[in-house]
Amino acid sequence: MIWEVFRQEKSGGYHKHCGNVHAPDRELALQFAAIQHGRRMKTHSLWVAPQREIGEIDADEMSFGGMTDKTYRWATSYTDIEPAAPEVAESEAEQADVEHSLEADS
C-alpha cells in the first residue's frame, strides 16, 4: 500500500506534500516516512494518508483562478489607490506575487 507523506518544517507551519512510501499499515507508514523524509530535511511533524484516499482535480478538468479575466478582484488593479495601511500593502504584495507567477506560466 502507498502512503502520501506531508512534512511540516516547524511548529505552526503548513504540512506540505513531500513524497510517498510503501507500508502495510499506518504505523509503519509513519516510521518509514520518518526515515525517508524526516531524516535529512528539517522536520517538526509528518502526516501520512493512504494514497487512494486522496482526491485530485487538475487544470485539464477545471479552470482554476487566474485563467479568466478577474482583475477586479485583485488589490493591484486599484492603481489609483495607495494602500491605506501596512497590512493592506502586505496583502497587495502577496497578491502581486501570485499574479506574477500566473503570468509567468501563461
Binding site: 478582484r73 488589490a75 489607490i81 494602500p83 502586505e90 496583502s91 502577496e94
Partner: peptide, 17 residues
C-alpha cells in the same frame, strides 16, 4: 483571509474616493 482582504479595503476606498 489577509491575502484576500487587501482587495476589499482598496475596493472600498476606491468607492469612497
Amino acid at each position: 483571509v489577509c491575502f484576500e482582504e487587501g482587495f476589499h479595503v482598496k475596493h472600498g476606498e476606491s468607492i469612497l474616493s
